[in-house]
């Protein structure tokens, strides 16, 4: 099957997934409480309450309500996010770029560090380097995020003054009116559109600490996965053959072993990136990051149904796309795997 046809077919298959997700979340939010409660207050009389039920179709069966909601989704009317005090579509457009920039920076750090450390650990198996990375990766996954984040802030912001206090950019850009001219919400892109390199540098500067904090658990995951698959690959026959043919050890590892070892690691990277995109409440809280994590957590807590549904659809979409990319990369890296 051709790659194009495969991608097209997979994209079509996203639809049932999104429908499945929306049905599950929709029923769950309807089961969790009276959805009308958000629109009713103590001063309303019975007829006004009835009006609310009428207006939002709460008096009809759940499946009918679902179709009304689905209709809204298709017409790009995703409802009003009470949490963000703006329409849900606007809220996504506001929060997603912030989260995306952070997640991307974070996964890049994680991939570079994870694969390098993982490969080296496998090559130097059971030597001090291997043991050290093992301990570091263990700490990486079991360390409380807020502890790590605050520690980084304490050292690199408060004591060394190398990094900023948090947020997406410095105050000076608010005061000089630069931030009133944002277009996309991706600060790196916006700063380049404006041609303001100072702003661009400032944005990158603000990204580093939260991205490092966020990358810690992904580094650990990627490192371990890469180490293990590297160990497996290193014992395969073709590696032995390569060595026997006198290929230098560096080339064996770089050209022959690492590429094949990347296959299982790809899955982990794809899934980790998908996870990062759904936002990280604690990291965002510590670094004053206006991202999806804080928005979704607050929406959940206030039962802001419109926000929850919008958020879930978005995350579902991100996940299926991430999985698709993972599968394509699988096929690219491992010719034995046939797409389809």
């Amino acid at each position: 099957m051709g790659l194009k046809r495969y991608i097209f077919r997979r994209l079509l298959l996203i639809i049932p997934v999104l429908i499945g997700v929306s049905i599950i979340i929709f029923s769950l939010t309807r089961m969790a409480g009276d959805p009308a409660a958000a629109y009713i207050n103590e001063k309303m009389n019975a007829s006004q309450i009835a009006d609310v039920y009428q207006k939002y179709h709460f008096n009809e069966p759940v499946y009918v309500q679902y179709f009304y909601w689905l209709n809204g989704i298709l017409n790009l009317d995703w409802g009003w996010s009470k949490t963000a005090t703006m329409p849900v579509t606007d809220a996504i457009a506001y929060y997603l770029p912030a989260t995306f920039e952070l997640a991307l920076t974070s996964i890049i750090i994680a991939i570079i560090a994870g694969i390098a450390l993982g490969t080296t650990s496998a090559v130097k198996k059971n030597r001090p380097f291997d043991h050290t990375t093992r301990v570091i990766s263990l700490i990486g996954v079991s360390i409380p995020v807020f502890w790590l984040g605050l520690l980084l802030l304490l050292v690199f912001y408060a004591q060394l003054g190398l990094f900023p206090k948090g947020g997406r950019y410095s105050d000076i850009f608010i005061l000089t009116g630069v931030t009133k001219n944002l277009v996309t919400g991706f600060m790196t892109v916006d700063s380049l559109i404006m041609g303001n390199l100072n702003f661009f540098a400032d944005v990158i500067w603000h990204l580093i600490l939260p991205a490092v904090t966020l990358s810690f658990s992904s580094i650990a995951l990627i490192l371990r996965m890469q180490r293990n698959s590297m160990l497996e690959v290193l014992h395969l026959d073709y590696i032995k053959t390569a060595r026997a043919k006198g290929v230098p050890e560096r080339a064996v590892i770089r050209k022959h072993a690492r590429r094949n070892a990347l296959i299982p690691t790809t899955t982990v990277v794809g899934l980790a990136f998908g996870g990062l995109l759904s936002g990280a409440v604690l990291t965002e809280s510590i670094f004053q990051w206006p991202g999806l994590g804080r928005w979704s957590a607050k929406s959940i807590l206030r039962m802001d149904t419109a926000s929850i549904l919008g958020f879930c659809l978005l995350i579902a979409f991100i996940y299926v796309i991430a999985n698709l990319v993972v599968d394509i990369m699988y096929a690219y890296l491992d010719p034995r795997v046939k797409l389809g």
């Binding site: 605050l150 802030l153 304490l154 408060a158 206090k165 948090g166 510590i286 004053q288 804080r294």
Partner: peptide, 15 residues
């Protein structure tokens, strides 16, 4: 500015 985490607020005030 909204700083949700109290530890961050402490650091910023201290600094």
């Amino acid at each position: 500015s909204q700083v949700p985490e109290v530890g961050t607020r402490i650091l910023q005030l201290q600094n």
